[in-house]
Design a protein around this nucleic acid. Sequence first.
DNA 1: TTGAAAGCGCTAACAA
DNA 2: TTGTTAGCGCTTTCAA
Lengths: 359, 359
Amino acid sequence: MPAAPRAGVTLADVAAAAQVSTATVSRVLSGNYPVAARTRARVTQAVADLGYVMNVNARALARSRTSTIGIVVQDVAEPFFGHIARGVERRAAELGLACLIMASRGSKERELELVDLLRSYRAGGVILVGGATDDRGYRTKLAHRARALADEGGILVLCGRPPLGDGAPTRSVGYDNEGGAFAVTSHLLAQGHRRIAYVGGPPRLSTHTHRLAGYRRALEQHGVAWDDDLVHVGRFDAAFGRATVAGLLRHGLAATAVFAANDEVAVGVYEAAEEAGVAIPGDLSVVGYDDVPVATHLRPRLTTVSVPLEELGRRAAELCVADGADAVDAVVGTRLVVRDSVAAPRAATEPGALSSAES
Amino acid sequence: MPAAPRAGVTLADVAAAAQVSTATVSRVLSGNYPVAARTRARVTQAVADLGYVMNVNARALARSRTSTIGIVVQDVAEPFFGHIARGVERRAAELGLACLIMASRGSKERELELVDLLRSYRAGGVILVGGATDDRGYRTKLAHRARALADEGGILVLCGRPPLGDGAPTRSVGYDNEGGAFAVTSHLLAQGHRRIAYVGGPPRLSTHTHRLAGYRRALEQHGVAWDDDLVHVGRFDAAFGRATVAGLLRHGLAATAVFAANDEVAVGVYEAAEEAGVAIPGDLSVVGYDDVPVATHLRPRLTTVSVPLEELGRRAAELCVADGADAVDAVVGTRLVVRDSVAAPRAATEPGALSSAES
DNA sequence: TTGAAAGCGCTAACAA
DNA sequence: TTGTTAGCGCTTTCAA
């Protein structure tokens, strides 16, 4: 058992105890450097005896680079972000990196502040997680910081959002929002649905706009006309899903299916349907996006698009340390997962089948 | 708009640009120090012009204390931990602290390593989140580190777990596991249940043992005999809840209710019941613990014990910076939340009522 | 293979 | 009100 550690044990203390210079201690601690076996042993012993742990801040200062990365999410407790954060944390730990985590609460101003804060911590990589708002001024400001970060030896990593453009020095790992939305909408279309409501948001958030684009493309490909009244843009949460569908139901639902642009929204859709006595999928088919655990908690189980969130996070962590060569922007695949929340629309099924099912 | 930041802008650069000494720059940056308004303005200008951001590592070294705290959870993506982490992060941000987050994956060896790692980062506070394994050797080792941390000017904060004893210098914020379990078990008893299965774990984890103790006390108080066959100790996850109850059902369920020691376990209980065609709460009543969002996603909605997880996290963050005086160990309250997963047991209800309800 | 010493960027006496 | 300067704990040439 190591001795009870003393206050503020430093490298110099260890050097004194081992009767060597601080340089030698530094070398054995850093590994990769020729040190005589006996000297090394003495040093190792002294470290153990004194309960010494290195001061990483001092090391960071001396080396002028840290082994810390930063990760900015909207909300730590949100499953979407939590799963990505898990991937980042795990891969970072494997790579010997520590993670500073911060929450923007969806404010782009705060996000900007946070990357500056992370910059002050000299984080080697700063990972921005989740969709970004499409805003010219904001993009410019972010590009500035990306450049500053790069100048300081760090790198800005975009995780699940589009690149900044303008040759801003960033790396990115994304997934195909448009493609997943296209797939899941096509699935609905294939079942015979023609009036499919879209519920998502916020307005200019990339995740939402790209998913909406996939929805649109699927409609077009099936020759279904676009209907503004079916598209509801608000937020990415259950309350919005619920309020929207409750409203729809109140005014006589025109849709036979709803594409909840993420699983949280789908939770709200289920609630509204339940309250109104509308059966899923009998009266209304529902699909989601993300495939977070709640998708399998819902009854009927939710058909949705699976995004490998943890993998996304792992890739992002890797991009923080990759050297130029293998720092290729990555894209991970999404996958439609069919469960029990979709059925053919009532109108498409012969009347007899409906009534017999209800008898 | 600030100028495009240059690489490695330092305090000295700012001082030069503003034609003052580094000390002066340091003073305006630190705030709270008398500096002439005009000088201050020049410095502020230079900072903006150069896009300067302070190097916190250098500051930490010079001040020999950091504005960083560490938080150790089992798993970042688990809602229980995610919500606590959210509280920590939010309060920390308000206090001007950055959070290093690390996951132990439930290994106590790794947890010990992580506090050493955090110690090397000179984290001012290290928050250990969630139940702890009752293990003498482990406790001793942790106590050592608590002392080392304290010697270095930091503090070990225990969040949701019992104190170390032996006068180890820690602070803690907890909640009443035993009391909550007593309350929810009593609720079941009050409905007429006498054969209540307990499903939780792992074996010596404090959260589990304390909840089990509450269960036991409630039984005793109602004069219900303890039955080993009803107590199932394994893990705190859905898979265990499912497997356990599936087994129970296969061998002819002896219980009329189950106390899932956390909501995740309850998810598994619901799955097993669903598979076996057992109705909740008609055939089987179920209660959980924690009141994470899944409790309201389940149908019927889960009766459970609400723990103010975010508040718990906020308190923990505060304890990292509190000075001796107001650093009182805190305990936040829990609350029984009754929803729809509990009914009177079949045996206790008169036969007529049952059949009429089903007709 | 090891040691001496000059920093890394910032703070905090101590002077002025 | 401001400047000078000696560290904070570690790394890393450059010599030996």
